[in-house]
Nucleic acid binder design. Sequence first.
RNA 1: GCCGGCUUAGCUCAGGGGUAGAGCAGCGGUUUUGUAAACCGUUGGUCGGGGGUUCAAUUCCCUCAGCCGGCACCA
Length: 646
Amino acid sequence: MNASDNSIRVTLPDGAVRVVTRGTTPASIAASIGPGLAKAALAARINGALADLDLPIEADATLSIVTRKDADALELIRHDCAHLLAMAVQELFPGTQVTIGPVIEDGFFYDFARNEPFTPDDLPRIEARMKEIVARDAATRREVWPRDKAIAHFKAMGESFKAEIIADLPESEAIKIYWHGDWHDLCRGPHLMSTGKIGTAFKLMKVAGAYWRGDSKNQQLQRIYGTAWRDEKELAAHLHRLEEAEKRDHRRLGKEMDLFHIQEEAVGQVFWHPKGHALYRTLENYIRRKIDARGYVEVKTPMLLDRTLWERSGHWAKYRANMFIAEVEDEKKTLAIKPMNCPGHVQIFNQGLKSYRDLPIRMAEFGACHRYEPSGALSGIMRVRGFTQDDAHIFCEPHRMVDEAIKASELIFETYRELGFDDVKVKLSTRPDERIGSDAIWDKAEADLAEACKRLSIPYDMNPGEGAFYGPKLEFTLFDAIGRGWQCGTVQVDFNLPDRFDAEYVAEDGSRKRPAMLHRAVLGSMERFIGVVIEHYAGKFPLWLAPVQAVVATIVSDADDYAGEVRRQLRLAGLRVEADTRNEKINYKIREHSLAKVPVMLVAGKREAEEGTVTIRRLGVEKQETLKLGDAIALLAKEATPPDLR
RNA sequence: GCCGGCUUAGCUCAGGGGUAGAGCAGCGGUUUUGUAAACCGUUGGUCGGGGGUUCAAUUCCCUCAGCCGGCACCA
């Protein structure tokens, strides 16, 4: 063996090349660059892949040293935190089995198997132990074990879940065991060189149940969630963001702003209060104008339909568990409350003979649907059992499907933009295992939806196997002001219903043909969308959406009559206005209506009453402006114009 | 549906085996006020429902419901 065989070339990020002995570790290269870097080093990136600092480099490679400042650091810290958590839990609660503990957005979790539940009180104890282990600065050691030895070892320890994981690893995978002091776990790594490197910018957040391997048929484990960051400042910032998110929670704002409520006797259904319903109507009318302008026809179909119809549609077989059923005593009938509007729309289509000249028929309905959702799925007005879809079904000649999918998608994008959502992602969900229709039909429908996206030049992600049993779909997810995604709009192809209900039209050649059917919703559910809008704007709605657009607040009781007149004229101009003539100081009124997030306050004191003016004060803005009443009305009416009418 | 937590006045919340409190809101007054809380007085609760233990339960136990956080689900 000559000397050159023992040398390798390591290329650093700045392009510099170091010739080192084969088997040199990133740690020693870092040390040779400088003691500061050696100290700051958390891990290495060898040929682009994250690796342990003590992993010998065996061939020419590119190398970068990962420090706390790098984006990768978070991933490493969080991964180590998961181990730290498992270690602390096993020290404090002997007999607890470890399973998996991955890195997730903002943090990590670890799933444990233990008979007694963890309580929220356990979290501070575990967290304290984690910090103790960090202070211990236990060294990390990596070992590679033969598979059989590893399985036998973990089985002997009573760690049956770990043994199962190892047994399921592909043969090609090396079984790596990481030691942190005298605690060890199976892990693919990499890890920081000691527990002291993790730092203490972490916090355990919550305990939850989670099924082994995500399957509800399996044993339920106990999951502990934590968040972890590079330093205390980042942690504090994250906790602050959570607090801010809580402030815009639609359930909280719904109560504070008197928009809606839900009560025990109508679980999963919304009582819309006057202000909430003002918002609801504004959105509904807006959507109605948009679809009217695009050649839709609006219909209304029955809430209760006989069981036989649901049998024919296929819902009784496929969707029965989610349907509310109504038995009628006098007649021997079973009715179901509609969970979807589509079967009803096909009934309307089927009345009378349709010609190809009549197509496309774009049949819309603000359709109230009810679905029996699992109790654990309910959440405020975001996930409910009674909701209204801004639904439509488009019956068209099969070759027009791409065009119609394009039109529907354009409507969705335009609507989101006008409502203040610019960040939208599209997914194409393709054939699920359980489905109807031939592969040829699916090929065509999936290709049509993809073609629609292509022609619109919108990027989309594939979502394989997630289509409906009756056809593929495009799903539109919008992202709100704090970056959370909400799936709202959808465009779906349906091969099922036209067939089952024998929908037909007379084609150009006089033959009877089956129309293609497209389901689409823009907002999805009114309830859910309003929830999203509330959280997106944190209750501070743009003027056109605000439930109360302006409050006329008096300073002295002499201005009461004038305030009434101002209110009357603003209402004539189409604005939602209240007058506050209570015997309170203007400070008090300003404060109260500011907290209520009323966008515009019109102050009317003695001066304004005499001069026929109002003083406008905008929400959160101290600067005021006094205008002639007529000018103020014109200004506000213009500002309050819905985006589609501007 | 599953795991855990929670449920006290209209709202936000404190309390705790001997029969319940605060702030705000409400109501009654006084005050006529100029841009984020004027002052005085005052009403208000089967402590989520049911059952049990106890001389005594809002408090402890069981059970049901709802809500919250996850998991599963979202045709």
